[in-house]
């Protein structure tokens, strides 16, 4: 699979940081080895290796500018949209190199969906927002099937009850929390394998946040979920695995409860106890 040594939990790396790259039991859904990202001359990510498991919600935490969002955007090649960004290292989805020349980015993004920091529904009806992905990928063979996909996606996102009578209203007319759930439903509609969430609750109020967290609980297991968050309580609540990033490096990765109660690294301890960040 790769030529990088599997590093056990707690062992020291040459750079002084400690990384357990394993996601635990079972074969990982995504593996990354020695990933580096450059924005022009500036290095944003420095040698990150991490495994992402199907059954887990994986949280990326760390102070602003630590590279967690940048790293997340490598996983579905959204960094391709930034002309000066350059990614090196191995990132594999089901043992397939996603940066291989013959990898179809369009297919990849259908398999690895994404939810953004700010809800970004298209200026279309609720129905068309959900149907967008299935339509461009030809997932439905008729109107009935498309209706079915829209309904199940909205149900899974816990939004069906609120919008079933107004599917023709504009998606942008919903409240912030509803918009974000609409975006999750939109991502679910193309039946991805992995869902990446980039600070999905940072623009929402606490009640809307609680709903999103509940939703993450419900869809966990059906999709491998990676969530970037600023909110450590949120990471503790929703995730089973947590990775702590600092200045572009992965400082520590492990079982969430261990990270929060018994971190092995000084930096992790400082961050989660609120000494900086």
């Amino acid at each position: 699979m790769n030529d990088i040594e599997h590093i056990e939990n707690g062992s020291e790396t040459a750079s002084g940081g400690v990384s357990s790259i394993s996601a635990g039991e079972g074969s990982p859904k995504m593996t990354t080895r020695n990933v580096e990202v450059y924005y022009g001359e500036k290095q944003a990510i420095n040698g990150v290796s991490i495994d992402i498991n199907m059954d887990n919600v994986t949280a990326f935490i760390g102070p602003s500018g630590c590279g967690k969002s940048t790293f997340l955007r490598c996983l579905n090649r959204m960094n391709d949209t930034i002309p000066i960004a350059k990614v090196t290292g191995d990132i594999e989805l089901d043992n397939e190199d996603i940066y291989a020349p013959d990898m179809d980015v369009v297919q990849l993004r259908a398999r690895v969906g994404m939810v953004f920091q700010k809800p970004n529904p298209f200026p279309k009806s609720i129905y068309d927002n959900i149907a967008y992905g299935p339509r461009i990928h030809g997932l439905a063979s008729g109107k009935d099937e498309l209706d079915h996909i829209v309904e199940t996606s909205l149900q899974r996102a816990g939004l069906w009850g609120e919008v079933q009578d107004r599917l023709d209203d504009s998606g942008t007319a919903l409240s912030g929390g509803q918009q974000q759930r609409l975006c999750i439903a939109r991502a679910i509609a193309v039946d991805p394998e992995v869902i990446l969430m980039d600070e999905p609750c940072s623009a929402l109020d606490p009640i809307a946040t609680a709903k999103i967290e509940e939703l993450i609980h419900e869809i966990r297991g059906k999709y491998a979920i990676v969530i970037v968050t600023h909110n450590m309580q949120q990471a503790a609540r929703v995730s089973q695995r947590t990775a702590f990033f600092h200045l572009g490096t992965l400082v520590e990765y492990g079982v969430t409860s261990d990270i929060f109660t018994n971190p092995t690294q000084e930096k992790t301890r400082d961050y989660i106890t609120g000494r900086y960040g």
Binding site: N76, M78, T81, V106, Q107, L108, R109, A110, G113, M114, F116, N120, P121, F122, Y132, G133, I136, H137, C183, R186, A187, V190
Partner: peptide, 8 residues
């Protein structure tokens, strides 16, 4: 980005 992330 939202559209590209959908695989469009």
């Amino acid at each position: 980005d939202g559209s590209l992330a959908m695989g469009a």
